[in-house]
C-alpha cells in the first residue's frame, strides 16, 4: 500500500479551462507550463477560434475535452468537468491555472520543492492583477487579490471528498474542500494578465459581467463598476528571479 502523501517523484499536472484564447496568451502560457509540468489537461469551453488545435500542438497536453456548447454560465459544472478530467490522468499534484495567468520565474523554479514533500496538501500563492499593461498591477480597494492567498496547487488524494460550490459564476478554481487539508501559504507570486489589455477589452469584459450578473448575485457590483475607473492605483511590477 502506498502512502497517501508521496515525498518525492510527484507527477505535476496542469489543469486549465480555456475559451477563445488563441490570439491572446495561450501559446506563451502552454510553452512555459510545458517546461514546468509533467502533463497538461485542458477543457475547451466551445472555442470558435481554433484554440483546441493550438492546445493539441503541445505534446504535454495529454487530455483535451472539447465542449460543443459553452458551460460558462454554469461555471461549477465546467470546473467539475475539468477536475474530473484531470484526476482521471492519475496526477500526484495539480496546478490550477488560467490561460492568462503566469507564475513568476522564482515561483516556477520552486514548484518541485513545493510538491515533493509529505507534510501539506496544498499551496497558495499571491495573485496580482495586471492592469492596462504587463508592467503594472492594480492595487486599490477593489483590486487587491494579491493581499490574500490564492490556492493554486493541490495534492490529489484518491478517495478524498472533493466538492465545488454549485455557483454559476466566480467558482473557486479548486474544490473548496481542499481547504480542510493541511496547506502552506507561500510568498510566491503569480501574474494575471486578464486585465492587462486595452481599455476596449476591459470595457467588453465589464459589459459581459453586467450581462451575466446584473444584480451582483455572484460578485460585487461595486467591483464591476471599478473596472471603468479612469485612474486606478497602479504599481510597477518587479520580477523576482
Amino acid at each position: 500500500m502506498r502512502s497517501v502523501r508521496k515525498p518525492s517523484d510527484n507527477k505535476l499536472t496542469v489543469m486549465m479551462q480555456v475559451r477563445n484564447e488563441r490570439g491572446r496568451y495561450l501559446e506563451a502560457s502552454l510553452t512555459e507550463l510545458s517546461e514546468l509540468a509533467d502533463e497538461i489537461v485542458i477543457v475547451d469551453d466551445a472555442s470558435t477560434d481554433g484554440t483546441p488545435e493550438l492546445c493539441r500542438s503541445f505534446p504535454k497536453v495529454v487530455r483535451l475535452v472539447e465542449l460543443r456548447r459553452p458551460m460558462f454560465a454554469e461555471e461549477w459544472k465546467l470546473r467539475s468537468l475539468l477536475w474530473e478530467t484531470a484526476v482521471s490522468t492519475e496526477p500526484d499534484w495539480l496546478l490550477a491555472i488560467d490561460a492568462d495567468e503566469f507564475l513568476e520565474r522564482r515561483a516556477g523554479r520552486q514548484l518541485r520543492e513545493l510538491i515533493n514533500q509529505d507534510r501539506y496538501d496544498w499551496a497558495a500563492l499571491r495573485m496580482y492583477d495586471f492592469w492596462g499593461s504587463l508592467t503594472h498591477y492594480r492595487d486599490d480597494m477593489w483590486w487587491n487579490l494579491h493581499r490574500r492567498h490564492t490556492m493554486m496547487l493541490v495534492r490529489y488524494i484518491p478517495g478524498y471528498h472533493y466538492a465545488y460550490p454549485r455557483w454559476d459564476h466566480h467558482v473557486p478554481r479548486l474544490p473548496y474542500t481542499c481547504a480542510a487539508l493541511p496547506g502552506v501559504r507561500t510568498e510566491l507570486r503569480a501574474k494575471h494578465y486578464g486585465w492587462a489589455g486595452s481599455q476596449e477589452e476591459r470595457e467588453a469584459k465589464y459589459e459581459r459581467y453586467k450581462r451575466m450578473d446584473p444584480d451582483g448575485r455572484w460578485g460585487s457590483i461595486d467591483q464591476y463598476e471599478s473596472i471603468l475607473d479612469p485612474a486606478p492605483n497602479l504599481i510597477r511590477w518587479s520580477e523576482e528571479e
Binding site: 500500500m1 502512502s3 497517501v4 502523501r5 488524494i157 484518491p158 478517495g159 478524498y160 487539508l181
Partner: peptide, 9 residues
C-alpha cells in the same frame, strides 16, 4: 483499505 486512506488523509 479505503478507511485506512481516509484516516491517513
Amino acid at each position: 483499505a479505503e478507511a485506512a486512506m481516509t484516516y491517513e488523509t
